[in-house]
Design a protein around this nucleic acid. Structure first.
Lengths: 204, 204
DNA sequence: ATACAATTTAACCAACTGGTCAAAAGTATA
DNA sequence: TATACTTTTGACCAGTTGGTTAAATTGTAT
């Protein structure tokens, strides 16, 4: 088996992920997934039994791969400000590469919240967040960031600012186009702006 | 016709909006909408021809009602900081009341971006944003907010911070539950935190 | 070459979906 | 009350959907 001639099992997951992200669970069709994978529809059921199980497998595969990268960004050398910048660079790169993923992801976990428990138990989220949280608390004690900063809020703020322009893209882009602002340029500006905005608001 | 005995046309829109928000366009069933409205399925088509047209009518009705309120918050007396606080209070009240709306809204406009043009032309968005933008620029010239603040980014930042905890609720809530943080409390804390966070980062 | 298991397919199916239609029920007008 | 209209309904339909099955094909070990 060569590297680009994947086996059916793997081809199916790739095709399923692409179709599910594009159309959502309800809008996706098993036939379309089979076509994209270049196989017969019955083979989908041979390997993954049902649409539900195929979705879960594809969802968890892609989500695990993406989320595990997020934590890596904080396991780098440097100050807390540099780490925030590292995370945002990685986050923005991934968002740029997978523009449709955020809306898909948040829609599906809202439709079926059990997915989150399965995703979290795959990655070692608790432990990683614990470390991250302690790091922020240390920076507070060291007087590097403001002592009234609540760490959970700060983390949510950083992700919010980074991901929302991709979730709300159609409406923000349309409004901005009326003011002749290019959305590509807008997104690019945000790369440095967000870090600046966050750091401004937390530095002691 | 009494006030709570609505006519069929109106009952249908209310039922449609509820089912569409709950299940999304693809997941919603005409039969379920008819049941919720307490009428026959054929009557849906009698009034609104097709699922597509019914969806568009229900979507635009609800979205227009919500969005028009947003602009009101900025047409109040007081400093720019008070206006930001006003907007965030209203925004958070609406989000609390319609928790499932954001994910529905952003999913549907991603699926069908034409909806945005129709929504924007209904409200007088261009004019309202122009006014709002000029107001921010004036505050910059008056030295009340930092002169390097880009207004479009600031507006997106404010909305991002406010709405994201409702979009990402399932995953944030699950992670926080592992650290014994109540999500209700977390959302409540954000009401004052967001305004503080934004003002910290823009005040001159 | 043969037997056996794993993979892949074409054909099929029952359930469901959005949508139609002709008839019935209701309502106003003369 | 007879007439013309709008509103509401039950029954129905064609197309689509996820899923099944038995047979064919391929791979593999003996």
């Amino acid at each position: 088996m060569s590297e680009n001639e994947l086996n059916a099992e793997h081809k199916i997951i790739e095709a399923a992920a692409a179709v599910f992200v594009e159309k959502g669970y309800e809008g996706a069709r098993m036939q379309q997934i089979a076509d994209k994978a270049g196989i017969n529809k019955a083979l989908l059921h041979y390997y993954y039994r049902s649409k539900d199980l195929l979705f879960e497998k594809a969802f968890l595969t892609v989500a695990s791969s993406i989320f595990s990268k997020f934590f890596d960004a904080f396991n780098t050398e440097g100050s807390i400000f540099e780490k925030i910048e590292n995370f945002l660079t990685l986050h923005q790169d991934l968002l740029f590469k997978h523009r449709k993923y955020p809306v898909f992801f948040f829609n599906e976990i809202t439709r079926k919240p059990e997915l989150i428990k399965k995703l979290i138990s795959r990655l070692d989220v608790s432990e990683k967040f614990e470390k991250l949280s302690q790091q922020f608390e240390q920076e507070k004690r060291d007087g590097i960031i403001r002592s009234d900063i609540e760490v959970p809020h700060l983390m949510v703020n950083i992700v919010s600012l980074s991901v929302f322009p991709y979730i709300g893209r159609p409406i923000i882009q349309e409004i901005m186009s009326e003011f002749d602002v290019s959305y590509e340029k807008f997104l690019d500006e945000r790369r440095s702006m967000i870090a600046q905005f966050v750091i401004n608001s937390i530095k002691a």
